[in-house]
Simulated assay, not measured.
Amino acid sequence: METTRKVKIKKIKGNVFETEDEVAVEYDLVIYINGNYFVTLLCTPINLEDLVAGYLYSEGVILKGKELLNLKIDEGKRRADAEISREDIFKYSGDRLLGEMTVTTACGKGRKVIYPVVREGADSKITSVDIDAEKTSDLFRQFNKSSELFDRTGGVHSCALCSQSEILIFRDDIGRHNALDKILGKAMLQGLDVSDKIVLTTGRMSSEIVEKVALRGIPVLVSRSAPTDTAIEKAKKAGVKLIGFLRGNRMNIYT
């Protein structure tokens, strides 16, 4: 599918003149689980299987990759149908779903959706890894040059899953959470061992971003942007090394 489109604009650069600008496409994807409506995501319409798989894992709907039995994407209908092995997602007790639940507003739709809270503790314990500052800076320079979509529009976030020396998975999206879910989903679908990997992101490191990384047992999260105070506390508790404001050879190590 198209990820950008051209729009007519007026540009001021000394003089005022009319021209075209290329902007990122915003696409609404409706996710159904076992035939039941679950949530609508606003996203960039590429790597949608990765997005859905990663989102379901990050939100605790599936706890392991093998619980995702089947996944079909109908791009024309803007619909994803996921079949999972768990049967307790849509069971109610009174007016609440069984299990530990929360209520939130779906992205951009103003609808209330219910999904399981990300549970404490990941599939595997986080193993501390040593980071070479020079290699990490070199890796981030490569990362910054990897997004053709950002170069064309300036309107997307990027995430990458890396070893100490190379980018293994790279994804773009209009949402920083979506970009992260895409790389996590791809890693899960590939059965990739992430216990010694690094996540690079262009976005702010909020507590939710840290939780998603910690849930997968990934030991390092790096951004050119800032963390929040709660993100730092959660990273300390989970054992995630948190690095922010990576610019050139400079960086802040928060945990």
Rank of each mutant, 00 (worst) to 15 (best):
D173S: 13
D173N: 09
D173L: 02
I174W: 09
I174A: 05
G175L: 05
G175I: 05
G175K: 01
G175Y: 07
G175D: 10
R176M: 10
H177W: 10
H177L: 12
H177C: 04
N178W: 06
N178R: 01
A179H: 05
A179G: 06
A179T: 04
L180I: 11
L180R: 03
L180G: 11
L180T: 11
L180Y: 06
D181G: 00
D181I: 00
D181R: 01
K182H: 09
K182I: 05
I183H: 07
L184Y: 02
L184G: 07
G185M: 06
G185H: 04
K186E: 15
K186W: 01
K186D: 15
A187Q: 05
A187D: 09
A187K: 01
M188W: 01
M188K: 06
L189W: 00
L189A: 08
L189C: 02
Q190W: 08
G191I: 03
G191V: 03
G191C: 07
L192W: 02
L192V: 06
L192Q: 09
L192K: 09
L192N: 07
D193N: 14
V194L: 10
V194D: 10
S195W: 01
S195Y: 02
K197E: 03
K197A: 06
K197Y: 01
K197F: 00
I198E: 07
I198G: 06
I198H: 04
I198Y: 04
I198Q: 08
V199E: 12
V199W: 02
V199N: 12
L200R: 11
L200H: 13
L200V: 09
L200F: 14
L200W: 10
T201Q: 12
T201D: 14
T201V: 13
T201K: 09
T201M: 12
T201N: 13
T202G: 15
G203R: 10
G203C: 08
G203P: 11
G203S: 13
R204G: 06
R204N: 14
R204W: 12
R204V: 15
M205S: 14
M205D: 13
M205W: 05
S206M: 07
S206V: 13
S206Q: 09
S207D: 11
S207R: 11
E208W: 04
E208D: 14
E208F: 07
E208H: 11
E208L: 12
I209A: 04
V210T: 13
V210D: 10
E211I: 03
E211V: 02
E211M: 08
E211R: 08
K212V: 10
K212L: 11
K212I: 11
V213Q: 01
V213M: 05
V213L: 07
V213Y: 01
V213A: 09
V213W: 00
A214H: 03
A214S: 15
L215D: 07
L215P: 01
R216V: 07
G217N: 11
G217F: 02
G217S: 12
I218D: 00
I218T: 03
I218A: 01
I218H: 00
P219C: 03
V220G: 00
V220W: 00
V220T: 01
L221I: 04
L221A: 11
L221E: 04
L221F: 00
V222R: 02
V222T: 07
V222C: 11
V222E: 07
V222A: 10
V222P: 04
